[in-house]
């Protein structure tokens, strides 16, 4: 039982970073109804920018975090212009395929620029774990969970208290009506990509700072974790993305402990598969979908 609780706590804390990745995917999906497969690789560019600043100037955590965000934002704008803004109306598949192509391009470019593959990333904290009774808490995980929770609060405020948030919600729910409401959809879309880039960069910074290293494979890893978490939670749902990320973290932690590391990813895919078959809308998706349909019928 103690093991189970310990795994649950670890899973939730690690899952908070998956939740951030899923939120980034969800923001982009909401704005465009398209998947940006290059989301993870764009974050990876940011993390390498952070590593570079760390190695070259032995910069502190704040500077590394800033470099990670800037790198991720630049890579994201590149992807948005090339795969999404250029491929506008109706061609969702073209966007997804081109974002896959750009993913390969980004991974190749980073591999050429950083030929050693594995690079050191500054640790979030080197303090020893703290014990509460028989449970122990890794400081990096605690930092990760706290920062992730703060990011979620800020995101909530942006979506519900700002004009950009209002416009993004309108575009996500009904792009046609949003256009008739006088919203500049291309501008709102680009801003949504940038917001997703910053959130993803924070997730990347937290994860790389916990692992204390980074490889070009991080792009693939982040895309997969974010996509699975988003699908578990329900495509396009903000609370779903958070719940999906946490669920993924817990499933991984439990299966790693009880079944072994080699079963960790397998279990995650199994849970995803079960969801796709039994509850295709995810944890939250179906609710949102039916509510939307209900409201649309009345208009």
């Amino acid at each position: 039982m103690l093991d189970f609780v310990q795994n649950l706590i670890d899973g939730l804390m690690v899952g908070s970073s998956y939740a951030l990745l899923a939120l980034g995917f969800t923001l982009i999906f909401g704005a465009m109804r398209r998947l940006n497969l290059s989301y993870g690789p764009s974050i990876m560019v940011g993390v390498f920018a952070g590593t570079l600043v760390h190695m070259q100037y032995s910069a502190g955590l704040i500077a590394v975090a800033a470099a990670t965000m800037i790198g991720s934002a630049i890579a994201t704008v590149y992807v948005e212009r090339l795969c999404f803004a250029a491929v506008r109306s109706g061609a969702a598949v073209a966007s997804m395929v081109s974002s896959f192509a750009v993913w390969m391009q980004i991974e190749e470019a980073v591999t050429l620029a950083f030929p050693r593959r594995t690079y050191a990333f500054p640790a979030l904290s080197d303090a020893p774990p703290i014990y509460v009774g028989e449970l122990f808490f890794r400081i990096e995980y605690v930092v990760m969970a706290i920062v992730a929770a703060l990011v979620m609060l800020v995101l909530y405020a942006i979506l519900n208290r700002t004009r950009f948030g209002l416009q993004l919600r309108a575009v996500s729910q009904n792009p046609v009506a949003a256009r008739y409401s006088g919203i500049n959809i291309p501008a709102v879309t680009l801003q949504a990509f940038l917001l997703a880039a910053v959130i993803g960069a924070i997730a990347g910074f937290l994860i790389a700072g916990t692992d204390q290293q980074i490889t070009p494979r991080f792009g693939l890893w982040a895309t997969i974790k974010g996509l699975i978490a988003m699908m578990l939670g329900g495509l396009g749902s903000i609370p779903g993305a958070i719940l999906g990320g946490l669920l993924l973290g817990v499933v991984e932690a439990q299966s790693q402990w009880y079944l072994g590391t080699e079963y960790r990813d397998l279990m995650a895919y199994l849970v995803l598969f079960a969801f796709l078959v039994l509850r295709p809308g995810g944890l939250m998706g179906t609710v949102a979908v039916t509510q939307d349909r209900e409201a649309a019928r009345r208009l």
Partner: peptide, 19 residues
Amino acid sequence: RQLVAGLSVEDTLMLGAAA
């Protein structure tokens, strides 16, 4: 009409001001 069904009346009006 072209209203966003899920937005509140207040939010819908604010869209007009934002535009």
